[in-house]
Amino acid sequence: MEQGTVKWFNAEKGFGFIERENGDDVFVHFSAIQGDGFKSLDEGQAVTFDVEEGQRGPQAANVQKA
């Protein structure tokens, strides 16, 4: 798993971006967030995640709040 920081996340649209430790950004969809209840992330929040190849390039999977 990688570690990163939430760059931004739009809860209304259900997606955002995580900044990886290497400085690259990776797309995150709310469906990739682990846990119960409303799935959202806060700007600046530390997270761990896997990276999978999506239809439009790399995207975060198995996102967990650190």
Rank of each mutant, 00 (worst) to 15 (best):
M1A: 14
K13S: 07
G16K: 00
A66V: 15
E12R: 14
G23D: 09
R56K: 12
E2G: 08
K65V: 14
Q3N: 12
Q45A: 09
T48W: 14
L41S: 03
E43Y: 15
E12V: 13
G44W: 05
F49S: 00
K13P: 02
D42C: 12
E19W: 15
G35Q: 10
S31D: 04
E2I: 13
V51H: 04
L41F: 05
G35T: 10
D24L: 13
K65P: 12
T5Y: 14
F49D: 01
V6L: 05
S31M: 07
A11W: 10
L41Y: 03
E52A: 11
E12A: 15
V28P: 01
V26Q: 01
Q64L: 10
A60Q: 00
V63Q: 01
N10C: 09
D50A: 10
E52N: 08
Q45Y: 05
H29I: 04
I33K: 01
Q34Y: 10
T48L: 12
N22L: 11
G23K: 12
V6N: 01
H29A: 03
G37V: 05
F15R: 02
A60Y: 01
G16M: 01
G44V: 02
G37N: 07
K13Y: 09
F15E: 02
F38K: 08
E43P: 15
V28R: 00
G44S: 05
G4K: 01
G14V: 02
G4R: 01
V47Y: 03
E43I: 15
F30V: 08
G57R: 06
Q64A: 10
A11T: 14
S31H: 08
K13W: 09
M1L: 12
W8C: 06
A61M: 12
E43T: 14
W8F: 08
V26I: 13
N10A: 07
G23E: 09
A46K: 15
G54W: 06
Q45V: 09
E21G: 11
K39V: 08
G37F: 07
V28I: 07
D25L: 14
V51S: 04
G16R: 00
K7F: 03
D36H: 12
E53H: 12
D50P: 00
A11H: 14
D25R: 09
Q45E: 14
A11Y: 12
D36A: 11
A66P: 07
V6I: 10
G4L: 01
G14M: 03
F17T: 03
E21I: 14
W8A: 03
W8M: 04
K39Q: 09
F15K: 02
P58T: 08
A11N: 11
F27H: 02
E43Q: 15
Q59L: 06
E12Q: 14
V28H: 01
T48C: 08
N62Y: 05
E53L: 13
E12M: 14
V47F: 01
F49V: 01
G16D: 00
F49Y: 07
P58K: 11
A32N: 08
H29W: 05
G57V: 04
S31K: 09
A60S: 04
A11R: 14
F15Q: 03
L41P: 02
G14S: 03
F17L: 05
A61G: 08
D42F: 15
K39I: 08
V26F: 04
M1Y: 11
T48Q: 08
G37T: 06
M1T: 14
G16Y: 01
K7A: 05
N62V: 04
V28T: 03
R56H: 12
F17A: 03
F15V: 06
E53R: 09
F15G: 02
G35E: 11
T5A: 07
A32D: 08
E52H: 11
P58M: 11
D42S: 14
Q45S: 08
G14L: 03
Q34M: 13
G54A: 08
E52Q: 11
R20M: 08
F17Q: 04
K39M: 07
N22Y: 13
P58W: 10
F27Y: 07
V6M: 04
G16I: 01
V6D: 01
E2P: 05
G54I: 04
W8D: 02
K65C: 08
G57I: 04
D36I: 10
G14N: 03
A66K: 15
G44A: 05
A46M: 14
Q45G: 07
K65F: 10
V63Y: 00
F15S: 03
A61Y: 10
D24T: 15
G37D: 06
Q64W: 11
P58E: 06
V47K: 00
K7L: 06
Q34C: 06
A46H: 15
L41T: 03
Q45K: 05
R20I: 07
F27A: 02
F38S: 07
N10F: 07
G14A: 03
G44Q: 05
D25C: 09
G4M: 00
F17C: 05
E2D: 09
G44L: 04
V28E: 01
E2A: 10
A60E: 00
N22H: 12
E43W: 12
E12N: 13
D36G: 10
D50V: 12
E2M: 13
I18T: 00
W8I: 04
K39P: 07
Q64H: 12
E12C: 12
V47E: 00
S31I: 05
K39S: 06
L41C: 03
G57S: 06
D42R: 15
D50I: 13
F49C: 02
A61N: 08
N62Q: 05
D50N: 13
Q59T: 08
K65G: 08
A11I: 13
I18Q: 00
R56E: 06
F9C: 03
Q34E: 09
Q34T: 12
K7C: 08
E2C: 10
F30D: 03
K13Q: 08
F9G: 01
